[in-house]
Amino acid sequence: MTRGGTPRYGVPRPALPARRSGPARPQRVRVTSPRMGTTTRPPARSGANEIDEQTYLGEVYMRSLLRSQLRLAFTVIAVMLLVLTALPLLFAWQPGLSDIRVIGFPLPWLLIGVVAYPALTLGAVWLARAADRAERDFGEIVDQQ
């Protein structure tokens, strides 16, 4: 290795002031062995690195996380939309349901005015738990790498 000049790592040193005028100093030449690269171990790579550096592997991680979260979201929304599509049709098709009284309420009022809220809450609890779990799994995979 040569002394002075540009170090291999870090910032270049400031040029030394010319001490004296004289014959031009010979150009320094860096000599390295072709085996240098193989002796240094590549830095340990984590899943986080893969994602950070947008490698193919990182992309696979992210895609799998996105897909699992989207699947959860679609499941919950699809179930809800299904119920919310079916109920108005049911009430229009069977207006007699309103004559059925349950603890004083017309049945449709009980369903959409009371029962619906605990049902929504249960759906939300399930969804939040599942989403947290998906993130935890993702975190474990990424860390294991």
């Binding site: 207006p95 349901l97 449709p108």
Partner: peptide
């Protein structure tokens, strides 16, 4: 009866 029924 109409008032109480949704979708009516």
């Amino acid at each position: 009866s109409q008032w109480v029924t949704p979708s009516s």
